[in-house]
Nucleic acid binder design. Structure first.
Length: 560
RNA sequence: GCGCCUGUAGCUCAGUUGGAUAGAGCAUCGGAUUUCUAAUCCGGCGGUCGCGUGUUCGAAUCACGCCAGGCGCGCCA
């Protein structure tokens, strides 16, 4: 069954002959949804917008869906859903997409031999959330972690490994030792040539250097895995840059033969229209850069998974690069998939200056997560000292990690991100714990309900059984029900514009509306049939909250 | 110099692509609990949407010009 917005949109569109531009009402007093499309059409046809709106309304048949639509203001049409219709809609599951696509999502992409720091968090968390939403809506999603496991830094790493390695330090903290080796070699001018020689040997397939290289990657992947496990992030594939090495020469040859690339100042370049600087696909010394790797990666993905769309989640600084790569792909491949670069702002310090990678001032991701969990544990212990320690720690984990993720996801990704411990780890206001708390209160109701109410399903399941008839009479019941109804449209909007902050905003409103309902509408003390109706409302809220948080990569807990 | 992004309440930010009286959180001030978890709820205070000119029924949103900050601009990724 189509959703409320689908039904109304389609009806208006048919009557108007143009997009309905249906939105939630700016102010609830106008109704639930407003159609703005009439005014645009009236302007174009030079008609009176209010008269046109009346004509449109006369052609609408929305019996059983909403009250008679009204014209207001400059030509808005307002719709107010009927409680019976809302109740009926709530028994329907969230609609899957009508046209499933194959989507490759490329995010996180940390570098080997480096610690993961706060700079990696946005790509990882935003990408993971978008993957979850797309998958939930019924798309075929392939996630691929394009790690930086190849490049000039390996010359220095291998040299350092051979000459300066401290095995005790390596055993204790492999990545810290690798970072030390890199810095040590990099700092010494006289070692540069030797490092370059090690790199050349690696590229030529020298057995010893290959073994060291593999070992370094292995150690790095152990670190990545540990971090991803804490964050609950997983990838279908981890095909790093090195995977594409065998294809690079062919890519260059083909682009040259096709006349897409040409020699310039000794390098092989692709000049993209509108850009002065080219994409360099082969350096004058014969080496390949990441531009070539990215091109080979697109080709591999196209041939392997046949995606309709490839999405890259990286910071905004790579815009020019991806613009050039995408333009090249469109000239090169016969039926190129849609390519999207989803950007986000830089991470700034509290002084609004960028947190620089080289400075060593980076906040390590692992430390951030530790501190998040510690702060959460303090609060849990303070609120609920009687809970066993293991339980408190488990709660602290969900709350702490959830708070960090939510702080990131709830912000519009395009703006720069000012890093602040307090902001990242805040536990009140518009934060994940507020949403988790709403869920906990519902779970508590169901625990208390116990045998009194025979839950046909677990309270967090949506349930497909015939739900008790919903009696939506109290205003806060109605408000809550309508909010639940908007889950589906919110997910579609979130994916369409790649903006997880719309989902966080929606869930925050849901939690707020539930809290008002909770204050105003006793559940267990009510007489039937109100009690069953309210329990159903609770069950649906719990379902949407749990599912919604899951799509953000945030766990729920049963008590806190 | 050219290009991209940002500028909204004291602070941190939303604002569904041009819609109705610009909204939250934090901070601050006040109120609510014999009732299902008060990590809650209700209310007050707080605005020249960086500045200016334009486009039109209507602009935080679009165009142009300034101002301020950030990022990018051939062989690093």
């Amino acid at each position: 069954m189509p959703s409320a917005t689908d039904i109304i949109s389609a009806a208006v569109e048919r009557a108007l002959g143009a997009p309905a531009m249906l939105r939630p009402c700016a102010d609830p007093k106008f109704g639930d949804y407003q159609a703005n499309g009439v005014m645009a059409v009236a302007k174009q046809r030079k008609e009176n917008p209010r008269a046109l709106a009346e004509k449109v309304i006369a052609q609408l048949d929305l019996n059983g869906v909403c009250e008679k639509p009204t014209v207001a203001g400059a030509g808005f049409i307002n719709f107010k859903l009927l409680p019976e219709f809302i109740a009926q809609q709530l028994s329907e599951p969230v609609a899957k997409t009508a046209k499933p696509q194959t989507i490759v999502l490329d995010y996180s992409g940390p570098n080997v031999a480096k610690l993961m720091h706060v700079g990696h968090i946005r790509s990882t968390i935003i990408g993971d959330s978008l993957a979850r939403v797309a998958r939930f809506l019924g798309h075929r999603v392939i996630t691929d972690n394009h790690i930086g496991d190849w490049g000039t830094q390996f010359g220095m790493l291998i040299l350092g490994w051979k000459q300066f390695r401290n095995d005790t330090a390596l055993a204790a903290d492999p990545i810290a030792e690798l970072e030390r080796l890199y810095k040590h070699v990099n700092a010494q001018e006289n070692l540069r040539e030797a490092a370059k020689q090690e790199l050349v040997k690696l590229q030529q397939g020298d057995a010893e250097n290959l073994t060291i290289w593999k070992r370094i990657i292995e150690l790095s992947e152990q670190q990545f895995d540990a971090t991803y496990a804490r964050l609950g992030v997983r990838f279908d594939h981890t095909l790093g840059e090195s995977f594409y090495n065998p294809f690079l020469a062919d890519v260059v040859r083909e682009l040259q033969q096709r006349g897409i690339a040409r020699e310039s100042d000794g390098a092989i370049c692709v000049f993209v229209e509108g850009e002065e600087t080219p994409l360099i696909i082969q350096k004058s010394d014969g080496g390949f850069g990441y531009g070539t790797t990215d091109l080979a990666t697109v080709k591999y993905r196209v041939e392997t998974w046949h995606p309709d769309l490839i999405v890259y989640v990286t910071d905004a600084r790579q815009q020019l690069h991806f613009k050039q790569v995408f333009a090249t792909v469109r000239q090169w491949l016969p039926n190129p998939p849609a390519l999207e670069h989803i950007t986000f702002g830089s991470i700034l310090g509290e002084d609004r200056k960028p947190l620089k990678t080289r400075s060593g001032e980076n906040v390590k991701l692992a430390e951030l997560l530790n501190e998040a969990e510690e702060r959460a544990l303090t609060v849990v212990t303070q609120k609920n000292p009687e809970l066993p320690e293991a339980t408190r720690k488990q709660i602290a984990r969900a709350v702490g990690i959830g708070a960090v993720k939510y702080a990131d996801l709830s912000q519009n990704r395009t703006t720069d991100y000012i890093f602040s411990w307090d902001k990242m780890l805040a536990l009140d206001g518009n934060t994940a714990p507020y949403l988790q708390y709403a869920y906990v209160r519902i779970q508590s109701i169901f625990r208390k309900a116990g045998t009194e109410w025979e839950a046909p399903q677990r309270p967090d399941s949506r349930g497909t059984e015939a739900a008790p008839t919903l009696e939506l009479t109290h205003p806060s019941e109605l408000e809550l029900a309508k909010q639940i109804l908007r889950f589906s449209e919110t997910l579609n909007a979130t994916l369409a514009d790649y903006k997880p902050n719309w989902l966080t905003g929606y869930l925050y409103d849901l939690a707020g509306k539930f809290s008002v309902f909770y204050d105003n509408c006793p559940v267990l003390q009510s007489a039937e049939p109100v009690k069953s109706s309210r329990l159903t409302l609770c069950r649906l809220t719990a379902y949407v909250m749990k599912q919604g948080l899951n799509l953000l990569g945030i766990d729920v807990i049963e008590q806190m």
